[in-house]
Design a protein around this nucleic acid. Sequence first.
DNA 1: CCGATCGCCGGTACTCAGTACCCGAGGGTA
DNA 2: TACCCTCGGGTACTGAGTACCGGCGATCGG
Lengths: 227, 227
Amino acid sequence: MPVTPTRARLIDAAFALFEERGYEQTTVDDITDRAGVGRTTFFRTFRSKEDVIFPDHDVLRRAIEARLNGSTHETALVAVTEASRLALRHYLAEGDLARARYRLTRSVPALRAREIAGGQQYHRIFREFIHTWMGGGRESALKAELMAAAVVTAHNHVLRRWLRGQTDHPEPEFDAAMATTVDLFTARQSPGPEGGIVVFRTTKDLDTVLPGLRHLLSEPADTPRDD
Amino acid sequence: MPVTPTRARLIDAAFALFEERGYEQTTVDDITDRAGVGRTTFFRTFRSKEDVIFPDHDVLRRAIEARLNGSTHETALVAVTEASRLALRHYLAEGDLARARYRLTRSVPALRAREIAGGQQYHRIFREFIHTWMGGGRESALKAELMAAAVVTAHNHVLRRWLRGQTDHPEPEFDAAMATTVDLFTARQSPGPEGGIVVFRTTKDLDTVLPGLRHLLSEPADTPRDD
DNA sequence: CCGATCGCCGGTACTCAGTACCCGAGGGTA
DNA sequence: TACCCTCGGGTACTGAGTACCGGCGATCGG
């Protein structure tokens, strides 16, 4: 049993070299030379050169799925928020490693694509969970997908602010962002087939804005143009 | 000037071979052999083997940007919907080619990642446009990003249904999906200090829903619930 | 009509990621 | 001791992507 596991040595060597020379300028041989292991070992440990950047993806995904599956129908919305929080805290715990990964994904298109595709998995997990929660019907498929996209987007928004060093208190921002996001979907009734009442807010009273409303409604809405 | 341009021959050969043998089982040499051109020509025409699957990406992106930039502040929301419609119609016009691409992206992880990453560009374009439209302030950054994500998600939702053969009338579904999506954000738009006009759609005319509006406005609107 | 130039295409040779396969070292077991 | 099992290393190969060079035809100026 080695003092430092092979896997950790490879990750350290890879990130160090990527920072020094850049991703494309670093070969797998460079990494294995610095880590003091054979090339074969690298590809046995990671499926590809890209994978060394995203090591714990599967662990996080399973944790999120477990958190969602451990909820009841009544606590589903909370579970979604808390599962997202798991992801956020995962990256916060990584600290500088997450920041280094962010720098790499910003500068190397292939890594950016890989990261985005990985994030799509979370979208899918949340979409299926929310859709099931909504009953799984065809009419709720779009709303489930929109809600899943919103949750993932809100998470990414806060995470990215922290990764860029734009905030040192990401978790309060996360709470606020999630509240904003969930409100989008829970704050009003979904309209039935007979059309719906649209709830809106303004500082003026209804009669003041009514002429504006009538004007907007009097225009054809099928193929609106603005040029 | 060749009867069939080299570029088109390469695309045809590539898609045909990908369908016959699969993506990974087809080499670039196979493609160039069938197209009757040299290997060098392939990499001069497309940056990579993957690129031959996503040929007109730049064209569509520029069309969308042009549509957005051609709008005014008042017609921004319509522009977002119409720019998304450009994307939808682009894929509809491709017909079987878009379907073949969809089959490939479902079965080849690398292509799926590439497609998702490409879609992220639309998210970014819409996000920046909407954020600018909202004034560009820090407090509206999240809402702009959420709205952009929702628009892209709604578009993808309908497009995917068409790609999977689940609908033969995608454009009416697109209209409905976009109405649902835009309503999420406009129906309860947070008013500025001077308040604002809220755009909404309903199947009934204004006078029919007016009592409902008056009733809702008379209630506290901070934390409305529907369960 | 002729030579020069330019753009397009093909060929060659190279780097490097990723795969398949083989081999030896060590460690546990009968 | 003989056997096996696992793990790590080495070798050789395929194929994507790059760099570079040379040919061929078209156009243009003289």
